[in-house]
């Protein structure tokens, strides 16, 4: 499979993220630490191989790695190295 076929929207990670966060993080906005672009996480590019234990979220503009999610060994790890901030609704 080539890169384009593997590309999804951040929205596709909503199920996994729901297990970690109280609110729907794919509807949250975040700022890319590399280029500064602000977008909803659901609109960013998600790379998630079928049946793999994790996913990589990249900025749709500069392809910087925003976050890495891994679910393995009975644990979730959520690495946020490429996001300067996240903003969620308070309702």
């Amino acid at each position: 499979m080539d890169e384009i076929e593997l590309r999804l929207d951040g929205n596709a990670a909503a199920g996994m993220l729901r297990d970690i966060f109280a609110s729907d993080v794919t509807a949250a906005r975040g700022a890319c630490a590399a280029c500064g672009a602000v977008a909803h996480l659901g609109s960013q590019h998600l790379y998630m191989y079928p049946l793999s234990p994790g996913a990589v979220l990249r900025c749709q503009l500069c392809q910087n790695v925003l976050a890495v999610f891994v679910h393995a060994g009975g644990r979730y790890r959520f690495a946020l190295q490429g996001l300067t901030w996240l903003e969620t609704s308070d309702v």
Binding site: N11, A14, R18, D24, T26, A27, H40, G42, S43
Partner: peptide
């Protein structure tokens, strides 16, 4: 089932 999921689209 798990859901509903996804508040962006």
């Amino acid at each position: 089932l798990r859901g509903p999921i996804g508040g962006y689209f």
